[in-house]
């Protein structure tokens, strides 16, 4: 199991490369799929300068583990990495990393897609955006299972 929350800045490419080097043996996996969510400086509001990600610490830890477990039950994954930021985040910063490794491409791609959509729908994180007009809570995520 490799799912966690980070209060510190994360470098997604470095984390994925380090995880693969530490846990996967060359020749044993045929596919790696990843999703990296990054903060923009716009949403429904413009000129965002910062975002604060709040979470429900005890529940998020449990939920990320549960999502990884459910993905492993649905697809023949060899490995999985989920890291989600909390705290203050700035435009260009990574918010979330999901990476899946499998023997064949379909399992890694489908599991990665399912994990990000489930995470956005179920894991207890909340975004508060800041721009020159003040602070605003993001009210809901778009439904990526059927659109976007």
């Amino acid at each position: 199991m490799a799912s966690r929350v980070s209060e510190q800045h994360i470098d997604p490419w470095q984390l994925i490369a380090e995880h693969q080097a530490a846990h996967r043996q060359n020749g044993q996996f045929g596919a790696a799929a990843s999703f990296i969510g990054t903060m923009r400086d716009f949403s429904e509001r413009q000129n965002l300068s910062k975002m604060t990600l709040e979470h429900y610490p005890a529940m998020t830890g449990q939920y990320l583990e549960k999502l990884e477990q459910e993905a492993r039950e649905q697809w023949p994954l060899q490995d999985c990495l989920i890291v989600h930021r909390v705290g203050d985040i700035y435009p260009g910063d990574a918010i979330v990393i999901i990476a899946c490794w499998s023997a064949h491409r379909r399992a890694a791609l489908d599991a990665c897609n399912w994990l990000i959509e489930e995470l956005k729908y179920r894991a207890p994180f909340w975004k508060q955006e800041f721009n020159p007009e003040g602070a605003h809570w993001v009210e809901e995520n778009t439904n990526g299972h059927s659109s976007n």
Binding site: G37, L53, H55, Y56, H84, I95, V96, I116, L119, K120, Y121, R122, A123, P124, F125, W126, K127, W137, V138, E139, E140, N141
Partner: peptide, 8 residues
């Protein structure tokens, strides 16, 4: 109790 989640 909490509002709809908005992570990711």
């Amino acid at each position: 109790f909490f509002p709809p989640v908005t992570g990711g």
